[in-house]
Design a protein around this nucleic acid. Structure first.
Lengths: 219, 219
DNA sequence: GAAAGTCTGTTGAATTTTCAACAAAAAGGA
DNA sequence: TCCTTTTTGTTGAAAATTCAACAGACTTTC
């Protein structure tokens, strides 16, 4: 487990936890690390929410598939972020999303029962973990608000611009990479892929934008 | 404050807190109750997130307004639910949403600093409040997922049906009231109002649906 | 390095949504 | 009760999105 310490310490879940305590916790929680190939389904929609996942390397996507197979990408999760924590914390009997490895990834899985229910009063760090989870969930809520601000726009053009502006702001540069290919971006913005490609083309022609693959520059 | 105890005890924030401690906390937190008229802006977008709000009576809406004045309704909050807790917990400098009274409402405002930062170790109930906040935020996250599941549908018809099915499920009956008028429903589903009215008309004609004002019956 | 597979941009046609405008119905105020 | 205001359903025209299909560019695999 030691080789993961550096990443884990950056994870919000373990904020203000020292190395030694962290290692002890991992043992106590029965934390395990699994490796998933690209496109592998880590959690399937409908399965019970038992584990909190932490991305140690690689990246995963949180997606919803509707009845017709249309995909919505809710978010992309990278090290040292966690996922499925909201479902684990409410002990949801059936996950409403799937989690897919976007590339070969090392994932730490922690049975949430250990965090929520055990040593409620004995372990001093237990309180810290609850606090950290609370902070993390609040931050995730804000991310949802941002996504809704983007997807609530009515046109492909507005969604795209809102997304790119937000990425630019987040990465503090007019020149930045996005974590999606065209189809994925369409599934995140909830628009048609071909319409999205057309819109990117228009913006280029209008001189508002330059892009090569995943690299965008706002002009 | 005593007259609010009954409602407050049902609020997730005060889960597992006894009456006496609750009253003491309210004093210690400097909690205040304010009354807002219908349509009054309780929190304006852009203002700092200082307070957690609890709806004691009436109801409020969480909304986003874009550059052109288009409204998105993110949620409707009723007693004994709270609002703005995610922003308060992250101490967001600028609220990305507005909170509007949907009818005359009594709102309890609690300065979040008291919950997040004081008596971290002295007050036994402090830990309970953090735990309760964590549970609440997890539950809110799941509500967001549900909203996204609805609004990610591509057509007005599908959004409407998904929303009505979810309401029906939530209220455990094929016959139910919704908290929105037509314009509000459109702003929640992120569709055009006239198109929504037309779609409701179609569904009625097809015999899938019956409705009078806010009362719907799925057939 | 060749072949197979995937991703991207383009197209045009069909379908939907949006927008503005209006009248009837309902709600609220005097 | 009457008058005013708000809400709702309808309409038709304009605009945008979706869909299917395809070819070229790019990747991956063997």
């Amino acid at each position: 487990m030691k080789k993961y310490i550096k990443t884990l310490k950056k994870c919000r879940l373990f904020e203000a936890v020292d190395d030694e305590s962290l290692l002890r916790m991992l043992t106590c929680f029965g934390a395990k690390v699994e490796i998933f190939d690209k496109k592998y389904t880590i959690f399937a929609e409908g399965s019970p929410a038992k584990y909190i996942g932490i991305v140690l390397s690689g990246s995963v996507q949180i997606i919803q598939l509707d009845y017709y197979g249309n995909r919505s990408i809710l978010s992309e999760v990278r090290p040292p972020e966690m996922f499925a924590e909201a479902f684990a914390c409410t002990e949801t009997p059936s996950l409403p999303v799937s989690v897919i490895a976007d590339e070969p990834s090392e994932i730490m899985l922690i049975d949430s029962t250990h965090i929520l229910h055990t040593c409620q009063n004995h372990c001093g760090f237990h309180q810290q973990l609850i606090y950290n989870l609370m902070k993390d969930l609040a931050a995730k809520t804000i991310l949802f608000h941002q996504r809704i601000e983007i997807t609530s726009k009515r046109s492909t053009r507005e969604k795209l611009l809102a997304y790119l502006l937000m990425q630019s702001k987040k990465q503090n540069s007019a020149s930045f990479e996005i974590p999606f290919d065209r189809q994925e971006l369409a599934d995140y913005l909830e628009v048609d892929r071909s319409g999205l490609s057309a819109e990117i083309g228009k913006l280029k022609k209008e001189g508002l934008l330059d892009c090569r693959k995943n690299h965008f520059v706002l002009l």
